[in-house]
Amino acid sequence: MSSANNILEVSSLAGGYGRFDVVRNITLRLREGEAVGLLGPNGAGKTTILRGIMGLLKQRVGTIRIGDTDVTMFPTHRIARGYAAIAPEGRRLFADQTVEDNLILGAWHRRREPQRVQALLDSVYALFPVLREYRHRQSSFLSGGEQQMVAIGRMLMADPLILLLDEPSIGLSPVAVDIVVKALIELRRRGASLLLVEQRVDVAARVCDRLYVISGGEIVEETTPEVVGREGAELINKYLG
């Protein structure tokens, strides 16, 4: 029923935290090896969509398929076992543990395959060499950019079908943003499928194949970076200001 190369299909997702639905009627798909951006103003519900996919919303309706599996009813820790992994807003590292422990914990569900974990660890260090240097340092002592690298590395350690990134550029200096963006482009080259929440159009345009524009908790536009580049001003005025 689903086209074979869709690695993520979200249909009619609605949900929120308290008494209010933050997102409504969200239907989106992600093909294998594709990078899709979610753009939109504050409070549009971008983070909520990621949390919904990760199983972190208390109230949620709709269906979510990752790969060939319907994960709608899965608890978060089952989704985290190879289906999806997240580099959340604000990074949320385990602050009092070392960089390497943070990374190894990312592969918690592979704890019985030590060789696999070691290989993953090596690939993360290859992506971010600075982390190997700092691997025994407590993660809270790193700078914002380095912390973001650890968060992305921890996500990669799970080796999941899809990667979810929530505003990886937030609060970083231009130099650090550049490093993060280059890493994401490298991940794409390696064939990762990723869903990226961003407020910065330039960052999303550099990384993504397709963009969804979210406003008021709904998808209002599906577009591509080329279109944004061509008629950028118009689109940006319409939805993003």
Binding site: M54, L56, H77, I86, F94, A95, D96, H109, R154, A158
Partner: peptide, 23 residues
Amino acid sequence: LFGKVGMATAADPEMAESIGANT
């Protein structure tokens, strides 16, 4: 690793769930 995941659960249960730990 169990001790480390315990520390992780203590610090941020939601994130611990997100790395696949059944808190």
